[in-house]
Design a protein around this nucleic acid. Structure first.
Lengths: 184, 184
DNA sequence: TATTGATATGCAATAAGTTGCATATTACTG
DNA sequence: CAGTAATATGCAACTTATTGCATATCAATA
């Protein structure tokens, strides 16, 4: 399992509650890892039982207590062991491609619309990433060195989004020719 | 679930046994969908129960019987319904990026080696895809029209692999500078 | 002739992920 | 003052996927 390792990674950077982690998945790891709050809370419970993380209750007036999780030595070790050992190649599951593969069954106009939407989503994502990149490039040398590795994951996002858009344009181009031809 | 739809898609192109489907996942959909044989056989069973597919036993001398599955009308309809309706965005899970994110904990040489291996795998994959592309471009106009949509999925593969390689080069470049610097 | 690899199928246990529901507070908006 | 969104947590049921095991034949190889 790797949600475990994703959580260890986030906690290694900074302690936090389940909710914090959820936000950080959305904001920082969102491009390459997703997890629902249910999954995160369940995983934290398991990891706490397994002594990979500690939990401090922070009482808050009126609000329910926060559970702030921190790495234990054992958790830190598990993380660095995981980072050392090679990964097996991850499995891909892209339903959109299955759909395109079976695209002759689809209404071309509808497919075109979906592709336009797909392209635009990815364009928006790219803009977001580019803004973060800009911020990084304008930060201090020290900060840049600190964030060098996370920055490389951002680069993956940027390069990946550009690829998505490039491909989407090809598909859109093809579908537009098709639908234009059909209306002649 | 979408393994169901991936299987429907494959069977729509051509009837086949579970084993055939496994091979076709590996050879054709491999870039964007993976499934183990256990998953496929179990899914076929479920789909057969649900009357999305039919099953003809083909007796073979000595060898165990083949179960050749074909789409039913109901299966064909389920597929075209699925193709019509818009998808929700798929979730990404890329453990390598989690690892890079936590890369400051890793041995840089080891990480470098893993990235070199990653790049080379993707280079090989790209070569394979380019060869298939070449084959397509040298086939008849008729064939090209028939395979237009699957060809677009191949294009996704090609563009995606190029992006992987480009990113890998960036990471490798960074890691090489780091390890060189450390040895000075 | 023994072993390996490809063909061909499947069950059972476990792990991982999704969906739906549930609660409780605070802060903002209409 | 009612409704919505954000904060903060979790259970239970269900679906989906992985891992390990199991069987049986045929063809080629060592």
């Amino acid at each position: 399992m790797s949600l475990k390792h994703a959580i260890l990674t986030l906690l290694e950077t900074e302690d936090g509650t389940g909710y914090d982690l959820l936000k950080r998945f959305e904001d920082h790891l969102g491009y390459f890892w997703n997890a629902s709050h249910q999954q995160i809370y369940a995983q934290l419970k398991t990891m706490h039982k397994g002594a990979l993380i500690d939990c401090q209750l922070e009482a808050q007036d009126d609000k329910p207590d926060k559970k702030i999780y921190t790495l234990t030595d054992s958790g830190r070790q598990a993380l660095s062991e995981w980072v050392q050992q090679p990964l097996k190649l991850g499995k891909v599951k892209d339903a959109l491609l299955v759909k395109i593969y079976a695209g002759h069954l689809a209404n071309k106009e509808q497919l075109l619309e979906e592709m336009l939407h797909y392209r635009d989503s990815h364009k928006r994502m790219l803009q977001t990433f580019l803004a973060i990149e800009d911020e990084y490039r304008n930060s201090s040398k020290k900060k840049q060195q600190e964030l060098a590795m996370p920055f490389l994951t951002l680069r993956r996002g940027i390069i990946g989004e550009k690829a998505c858009i490039e491909w989407a344009e090809e598909v859109i181009n093809y579908l537009q020719k098709q639908t234009a031809g059909a209306n002649k």
